[in-house]
Write a protein that binds this DNA or RNA. Structure first.
Length: 225
DNA sequence: GGCCAGGTCAAAG
DNA sequence: CTTTGACATGGC
């Protein structure tokens, strides 16, 4: 078994602190989490910008749009008809239950908040955890395809289902909001740069770090808190 | 032109 | 409970 904390330290040393989640407020975090499903953040940014320019970065305003107007605003980020439904589902439920205030989720316990999110069609485990971690300050570890890919290369035998990996990261790491936020962002950064082919790593741009990822880790306390 | 991107859902096996 | 196909545009 690889040492997950050690990997975190190596990634942090190599890439430095990441500024996630880029957004002006918790609602924008949540919208971005839905829009970025299987989509580059680049395209999501353009879509978020379009929504802002139309002054509809708020659940009320989004619900006022016709299906046609909303989906034309979402076109650039792909799966736009599906995401039109997902976004509507989310905004409707958010208005119905919390008057559009995501901050209300913080007053619930973690289980309740996550179940509330998962009950919305269009929000699965990763999107839910992303919202909980980056918009609501719950220390829950987000597992994405990069994380699954990286772990399965380091440990080909490990079961990499969402819940198994999420449980493992949370078991082996200190339950710390800032570490969870940084670590997930760092894994995405590694995943984006790493070569797509098997295995980790050899000819990818950061092969030196990959081959030494489990060794020589200087203790690095800053950024933990 | 081919492959992939910060997943989710519904339908099958 | 795990696997498969659909969903769609944009970048390299």
């Amino acid at each position: 078994m690889v040492d997950l904390l050690k990997i975190y330290e190596r990634l942090y040393e190599y890439f430095g602190p990441q500024s996630w989640w880029p957004a002006e407020n918790d609602f924008e975090v949540a919208i971005g989490a839905i829009l970025t499903q299987r989509t580059t953040w680049r395209n999501v940014e353009k879509t978020l910008e379009a929504l802002k320019q139309h002054g509809v970065l708020h659940p009320d305003n989004i619900l006022d749009l016709s299906d046609h107007s909303l989906s034309s605003l979402l076109r650039q980020c792909g799966f736009y008809k599906q995401k039109t439904r997902y976004l509507r589902n989310f905004c409707e439920t958010l208005m119905r239950d919390f008057h559009g205030e995501i901050a209300s989720l913080r007053k619930m316990n973690f289980e309740q908040a996550k179940n509330w999110l998962l009950s919305i069609k269009g929000i699965g485990p990763e999107t839910a955890d992303s919202i909980l971690l980056y918009a609501c300050e719950f220390p829950t570890f987000v597992i994405d395809t990069y994380t699954q890919r990286i772990i399965s290369r380091l440990e080909p035998a490990t079961k990499s289902s969402y819940s198994a990996l999420n449980a493992r990261f949370e078991r082996e790491l200190p339950a710390n909001l800032e570490i969870y936020r940084q670590y997930h962002a760092l894994l995405v950064e590694l995943g984006k740069r790493n070569c797509k082919s098997q295995p980790l790593c050899d000819d990818c741009p950061i092969s030196v770090m990959c081959s030494h990822i489990l060794k020589t880790s200087r203790a690095r306390k800053e950024g933990y808190r």
